[in-house]
Structure formats: C-alpha cells, structure tokens
Design a binder for these strands. Structure first.
Lengths: 359, 359
DNA sequence: CTCCAATGACTAAGCGCTTTGGCATATACT
DNA sequence: AGTATATGCCAAAGCGCTTAGTCATTGGAG
C-alpha cells in the first residue's frame, strides 16, 4: 500500500541501507547516487515510517504532556506554548489529562512511559507525590510548569507572581492613586502571598503603602462581598489591587453599586488577564497578564535543551500589564459616554442596519 | 536497561513467542504457563514497548488531533472531550496546532501521517481545501468538529445552533418577556443565521415574534453600540437575545447606562457560555451553552466506532441553557441587594478577616 | 496396544528502519 | 608496477515485538 524505503531503494537500483543513509544524510554516498535516490523518493512520494524509525533509534521524538487538569483556565495557554515550541523541532506531543484523579494520572503516566516518550512536561497545579515519583520511573528529562520546584531533579517554570504584584502597584501609582487596598484570597495560597508581597514591595519602593488587605477567596462572589468592608474601613480608597480577575469584576460591580465610579473614584487592577466574553476590542478590566503561553514556551525550550544534554536553571517568566478601562478609562466605565469612547477606539466599528423583523 | 519481553520469557523458562501470546491473551498456552509468565512479568515490572508493538501490528493506537487554532476559545473544550473519550480506550492523542497557517497545517498533516496515526480528528472552524484533501492522503477514519460537513467522506460533529436559538427564546418567554429583540453578528455568518432561525422558530411556535434584529459583529463593542439603536427603535423592549456573550455583556452594560435595569426591565440571554473571570459561583450572564466538550466526546466516539468499522451519521449536539442573573436575577443585577443575594447563594461564603496593613 | 486428535510449546519469518563492518573498486603515491 | 589510501556500496545484524506454521507430547477411543 504505502511506499517503503525498500521500494525507493529498488527503484533507484541501490541497496536498502544506502537508501537509508541518503535519507538521513549519513554515511558515505556518492553525490550522484544521493541525488538519484532523493529524486526517486520524491517521485514516489516516499514518507518514512516514523514509528519504525523510533524503534530502531530508541528515540520517539515524542514528548508526553501530563496535565493535572486540562479543563482549568491555566492549562491551555501553557499547553499551546509547549506544543508550539516542540512542534517547531518535529517533536510531537502526546496529551494526557489526569482530571485531578490520582488513578487516572497513574495510568496515564504508565501509558506515557510505554509509548517511549523522550521527555515529559507536567502542567501541574501544586506539589504532588506521584509526580515526584515520576523521576524514578523515567530517566529522560522532565519539566514542570507550575509544579513542585525541586531544582535537584527537574526544571520548573513559573510565572513571576512577585513581579506581577509589582506591576499592579505601579499601574495604580501611575494613575495617581494613593489610598490603596488589596483584596485577595487566603494567605495560605502561595500565589496570593507572592502577588501581595510584590505589590507591597513596589509600593514601598515608591514611598507608598497598602492600607488595607482583605483575605477571602479567588471568586467573583468574594469580590462583591469585599466592597462593603473595604468602603467601611477605607471610605476614600482610590485604588484596589484584586488578587485575580474574578475578585476584580465582582469588586468593581459592587463598588459601583455602592455609588463609586470606576475608575474615576476607584481604579481596579485584576490578575490573570482572563479574557472572557470575547473581549476582543477595548478591554474592560485592567489586569496583570502572567504570560502563560510564554511559560509553556519556556518549558518547551528547557525540555529541548535538556534533550541536548544541557541543563539550565529556569528563570521565572515575567508578566505584563494589560491595560483596560478599570484604570485607564475616564469617569465611570459604565456611563454611556465611556461606552461610546470605547466603541470609537474599537478597530472595526460594526455596520448597523435594521432588517425588517420577520412575520 | 528496561525490561524486555525476552527477559520475561527467559526468566519464565519459555520462548519469546509464548511470552508474547501470554501478554496478548492469544494462542494456546497452558494455564499453568500463563500464570507463571504473568507472575514473572509482574515481578520484573515488565512494560511492553508500545512503539515496537505498533510497528509489528501496523496500528499505533494513536490518533492525530489537528486544531485549526488551539488558542481559540472553542478549541479547548472540544479537545478535552476528544481526549477524554479516546484515552479511556488507550488511544493517545497527538496534538497539532495549525495556528491558522496553511504552511504549518500542511506540515502538521504530513507529520501526523508519518507517525502512522490510526485516525484523525480535525477541530476546524470552517471549510478548508487542504483539509478536504486529507481524505485522499489518509485512508483511516477522519472526524470533523466544526469542519466541513461532507457526509460522503467524513463524519462531522456540530453543536446544534438552531436548538440553541430556540433555548434562548424559551428562556425569554418563560421569564414573561414579550417585546423581544435580537442583536447579533452579520447575516453572512452561518452561526448567526442558525441561532436566529432557531430563535424565531421557537418564538413563532409560542405565538410570539422577534420585533427587531440588529446585525453587527460578535464583539462586546457592538453590543454596547447596539443598545442605543435598540432602545430608539423599540423603547419598551423587555427581552433580548444576544448572538454571543460578548455582545450580551456589552449590551447589558449599555442598557443599564441608558437607565434600564437588567433583568427587571430587560432580560438578556447570551450565547456560548464563555465563563470568564472565574465565574465559579453565581453566574452573571444567562447564556446558551453549546456543550463543546460534548461535541469533542461525540467526535471521539464516532472515531472509535469508525475504527471498529462502523459508520454512523452524526447527530448535532444539543445545547443547554445556563441560567444567570441577566434573566433570573431580580431587579437590577448591579444593585447591592442582588449582589448580596448572589453572595448568599454562593456555595462557600468566604471568611472575611482584616489583617493589619503592613508597615 | 495402536492410532488420531487435541494440546502446548517452539522455530522461523516478518514489520520497517538503522548501524556496523567489510569488500571491492578507484585514486594517489613511490 | 606495487603498495597505501580513500571511496562507495552492500551484507548482516539488530531494535522489540507479532503471527503463521511446525512438531513433539499427551490423552482417549478403538
């Protein structure tokens, strides 16, 4: 059915090994012969059987991507970044999704190893015993995105949350805010701590400080609830750093319900830059973008390097500020004039036409 | 290094083929021998080399997933669904992301075929010449999610957008709305047409009708802009079906800026159920959920069936209504009482505590 | 006690490719 | 002319596994 290397060899009048050497550019082959074989291969549209090649070589040019939970918002960008880098080097990625289930994860690990992957990328969410044990079962390189950072064993790639908190601080300061608060999740969460630390550090650097910190959870509901306490404790607050975007939108909405204008009275900065609702033109929320795709790309690059035998220690990935209306808008982001301003700034103003209603 | 089947055979005192038959449960092997081999295999922690097996069998138990653009919001849920179903049958998925680039896509297709995938799932966004040509290069089964639906060649799995439009209509009617409008994208887009058709059909079935249709584009900006025209043409509108979630949130915000309360005065239904901003507790927007993960699962199931030689014609995937505050909320979703109502309905009310501000 | 059919194992061949080592040629040099 | 060297190719062996076909054993029936 398909064209084999043997077919090419026969058609070119050479032996199979010679054809193989031509295809791989190895060994000593006369220029003339080389050209002829290549020509025939092209004519016959020969496609090497990557599987057989892998068996002979002992390398599959395949890497396993083990996601702790692919459905999570943070997984996809990383996955795309990893895939992007690896596929540029002809490395294919096998995707495994543990769905938070230890049994599934265990099974996936076995299957990954059975398939002779050359390396592994773990997109995790935190320390995990099973994953730690992976090192012993697998002797190829392992790179963690978000996972347990144990420099002894495997490389870990992380978004720099400290720097992200600092970015939020600088944005609020740049917008002239001085009565500043922070609404975030529980202090038991590492990312909440890091973001807060970076935030307060940058404020201090500028001679400012955070006057209030409210701890709750990473949800919209908590953001809504926090508004009341915030205004009670700090009535003239003019800038808030929310621990994530969910808190930010909940908080912004509740602040306005309390009569504050956003951003005129209170500027709000979120975190994660989750683009919801096809936020394609003028973004509503100012947010810190952790550059997750870059995290993935870095992970891919470290894996590539490790496959070449080079071992580097990973630097945290720098975030960026994604400006939106909740700090850069004028007056009240919900007032019509602003809506129209946003609209004017849109790339492609939609054409409006009113078709007759049916029936 | 690793344990080979030959090692198991030797340790068990049988020949390699016998060991192979034991592992596969094929051939005639004495019960006694079988048990012994299995025992040894377990002791040695033998793991079959899936690659070599694939070469011998001519089947790789791997399927290629070709995403037109993995970064798109619609790809991930489908991908997860596909992966979920396939991995349950020990089929691994190789991920390829064309990133809208024809050259990349072409290359990926080649690599996919080189790796001897047993089947292909295309997560596309519309008809494509290259993809159509895939049929001729690949003789295994191909399933399209969103792609060109050509029942002659390949199975296509689609979300049922007509039914989705109908769901939106029923939600508005169920909330007692009668002055109804539709704000959507250009009529040149198939999904805009389908959703509208289903919407109007369901309205008509109930003896109601859509009094105004505004065409623009699938963006938040268009939703914001449409509010003015909508209110001008239909001042007492009390229910709007927005063509997607972006339009819906833009519209809802602008309606309120115009003095309307949502949902008390105007109820709004979106489409796609894009959960932005960690919308984990009480959802803001009522939206039609196209069940994209189910689309992926169906695609996986059709592929499995096709691998078994069965060919079925795919049914469109039924959507579901995801209720939120923009139709089910009371009064103004932005009023504080509602905020608190939302909060009360949250599963885990956050604990509030006010730590001393640092420095 | 012989014969035949199961039974259980093995030898051989094959999947498609890569790599090593050796053997002829052809070229270079004294 | 005769040796040393380089060149181009191929035969053979290997990767780890599967499948088909063969051949001793056994057991029961005659």
């Amino acid at each position: 059915m398909a064209v084999r290397l043997a077919d090419v060899a026969r058609a070119a009048g050479v032996s199979l090994p010679t054809a193989s050497q031509v295809m791989n550019g190895t060994g000593r082959v006369a220029d003339d012969t080389r050209r002829r074989v290549l020509e025939i291969a092209r004519e016959l549209d020969y496609r090497p059987n990557a599987l057989a090649r892998s068996v002979a070589l002992g390398r599959s040019r395949t890497i396993g991507v083990l996601a702790e939970n692919a459905a999570g918002a943070f997984c996809m960008p990383v996955l795309i970044g990893v895939n992007r880098v690896l596929s540029s080097q002809d490395l294919a990625s096998l995707l495994f999704d543990a769905r938070h289930d230890p049994a599934t994860r265990r099974e996936h690990i076995r299957h990954m190893l059975d398939r002779q992957v050359d390396g592994i990328v773990v997109i995790g969410e935190g320390p995990d015993v099973e994953i730690a044990a992976l090192d012993e079962q697998f002797d190829g390189p392992i790179v963690h995105a978000f996972g347990p950072h144990d420099p002894q064993h495997a490389v870990g790639v992380y978004p720099d949350e400290f720097a992200g908190g600092a970015l939020a601080a600088r944005e609020l300061l740049a917008q002239g805010r001085r009565r500043i608060a922070h609404v975030t999740a529980g202090a038991d969460l590492a990312s909440a701590r890091e973001r807060r630390a970076g935030f307060e550090h940058a404020l201090a650097e500028a001679g400012a400080s955070c006057e209030l910190v409210l701890h709750g959870e990473f949800t919209r509901a908590w953001g809504q609830a926090a508004a009341g306490d915030l205004l009670a404790a700090l009535p003239d607050v003019d800038g808030v750093f929310a621990g994530n975007d969910g808190i930010a939108v909940g908080l912004a909405a509740a602040l306005e319900a309390h009569g504050k204008r956003v951003p005129a009275d209170v500027a709000v900065v979120g975190y994660d830059n989750v683009a919801g609702y096809g936020e394609d033109t003028a973004p509503y929320l100012t947010s810190v973008d952790p550059h997750l795709q870059l995290v993935g790309e870095r992970a891919g690059e470290y894996l590539l390097a490790a496959l070449e035998g080079e071992h580097g220690d990973a630097q945290p990935v720098a975030p960026a500020l994604a400006p939106g209306a909740t700090t850069r808008g004028e007056g009240d982001v919900r007032r019509l004039d602003l809506v129209e301003a946003l609209l004017r700034s849109a790339t492609a103003p939609p054409v409006v036409h009113l078709p007759p209603a049916t029936a």
